[in-house]
């Protein structure tokens, strides 16, 4: 592996570290899996970082209650598939391409370019739909039993 590739990969890892954390825990995390993938290319030791991010017992229980794996795939198998790092070879231009795309994603390029405005963000049928969802995820406004029942009965 050339020095240029290594340097680019380091840039990519730095960029990935700035990638916003998922607000809801899932079986797999985009940020972590990509960091695990590119750190060896950049020559950075893995391990310590992914150890920190290991979900707690409560989080694992929560994930299992919420989700089920893809059809016909056992959960441990899914995990093994995730962990098996495919043999990959990168060159400098490839990594630069990855950086460019990741930059576009992280700078909200398309959200701003294809702006949809309040027509879709505050939809006429249910203006607080996204706000409510967002507040719940952020932990700003918790749903109570009564607001939940209201949604069940009236649909919003």
């Amino acid at each position: 592996m050339s020095q240029a590739t290594k340097e680019s990969a380091k840039q990519l890892v730095k960029l990935l570290e700035k990638f916003p954390k998922e607000r809801v825990k899932h079986l797999i995390s985009f940020k972590e899996s990509q960091l695990d993938r590119f750190r060896p290319v950049a020559g950075i030791e893995t391990g310590s970082a992914s150890e920190q991010s290991k979900p707690s017992l409560a989080e694992i229980k929560d994930i299992i209650n919420r989700t089920s794996g893809p059809l016909g795939l056992k959960k441990d198998l899914l995990k093994k598939v995730q962990e098996a790092l495919p043999e990959e070879h990168f060159n400098d231009t490839q990594i630069q391409e990855q950086i460019r795309s990741l930059n576009a994603i992280m700078s909200d390029k398309y959200k701003n370019y294809y702006a949809v405005g309040d027509k879709l963000y505050k939809p006429a049928g249910n203006p607080i739909y996204y706000k409510r969802l967002h507040d719940e995820i952020e932990g700003k406004g918790k749903e109570t039993f009564f607001t939940a029942m209201r949604t069940v009965v009236f649909g919003k």
């Binding site: 990638f19 916003p20 995390s29 985009f30 992280m106 909200d108 390029k109 963000y121 969802l133 967002h134």
Partner: peptide, 12 residues
């Protein structure tokens, strides 16, 4: 969530 909060969340 991704649609409302941004391209990074939508991409994930």
């Amino acid at each position: 969530e991704g649609f409302f909060s941004g391209d990074a969340a939508l991409a994930s």
